[in-house]
Amino acid sequence: MRHALRRAGDIIYPPACLGCGELTGEHGGLCGNCWSQLRPIEQPRCDVLGTPFSYDVGDAVLSADAIADPPPFAKARSAVLYDDIARALVHRLKYKDRTDLAGVMAGWMVRSGEDAIAGADAVLPVPLHRARLLMRRYNQSAELARALASRAGLPYLPSVLFRTRATRQQVGLGSQARADNVRGAFTVPEGRIAEIAGKSLLLVDDVYTTGATVKSASRALLKAGAGKVFVLTFARVAPGNL
């Protein structure tokens, strides 16, 4: 019966590539062409920022950026580089109501962020301001964080971190303007502090660009008493493309 229902569902909603929409053999995957264009971030990479290196420089090596400007978080990891296919997936999740993509994207994030996940006690998303949440109806980072927490078997804490003011969209802003835009934009309510005291937290977002947002959010969590913050995003913009 289950098989018959699945076949009927495939007829009504045939399996299609998550990237381009072409028909595929199964649901929740990419066609060969899109898969070949997706650029996973693996070793070698900066041990702190997760920035990919162009050649193997050894284990636990830091990038020049991590040395010159150490972030407040312990480690950042991303599943893929933010290229055309990754951008299409993020855009559909974020603006096209394709919340079904979160589970697939979280699966890739789990594989890329194994070391960050292993050190975490709980998972939480980068929050939207309530005004923007009302406009969008859901937070794409929360969809990713919820799916990731389920896959990793970690507690999900969606109501610990709040965005206290409606910041400008980060798209189109330079590095300094991004940092200024989100400075002091996050807080942990007094009544939630006990939930994170001394804990290692995994902060989830969709895209890491300059890191301004996750750095500001990490500072708020650490100020509230978190022991350590790890960052995991689906995609990250290559430093040369900032």
Rank of each mutant, 00 (worst) to 15 (best):
G50V: 00
S141P: 01
P15S: 10
A197W: 12
S200G: 14
L242F: 12
A194T: 02
F162M: 12
D115T: 13
D100A: 10
A8V: 06
Y208F: 15
A212R: 01
P125K: 00
A76Y: 00
V48E: 05
V123S: 08
P189M: 07
T99W: 02
Y13T: 02
L203W: 02
E26S: 15
I193H: 06
R92N: 14
L242S: 11
S36I: 00
L38G: 06
A142R: 01
D121H: 14
C46F: 04
G19R: 01
G9A: 13
I85F: 01
L38D: 06
R6H: 12
A197S: 14
L93C: 09
T210K: 06
V126L: 08
G107L: 07
S159L: 05
V104Y: 13
L124F: 11
R136I: 05
R137C: 11
H3Q: 13
L222S: 07
P14T: 06
P71S: 11
R165Y: 04
A66W: 04
R168L: 15
H27A: 14
V110R: 13
T187P: 00
A86K: 01
A179E: 13
C46L: 05
C17E: 03
R77L: 07
C34M: 05
N33A: 14
R45S: 15
L242A: 14
I85G: 08
L38T: 06
V229T: 05
R132T: 05
G25A: 11
Q140Y: 06
R7Y: 08
V104S: 06
S175E: 13
A226F: 04
V237I: 09
A179I: 07
G184S: 10
R45H: 12
A106G: 09
D100Q: 09
L49S: 15
V214E: 00
G29K: 05
R151D: 03
A235R: 03
G240A: 11
P40M: 04
L5S: 02
C46P: 08
F186K: 01
G198R: 03
A238C: 01
Y138V: 06
A177P: 00
Y156L: 06
L232N: 12
T187E: 15
T213Y: 02
L128P: 09
G19W: 04
H129Q: 11
R7P: 00
S218I: 04
L203C: 12
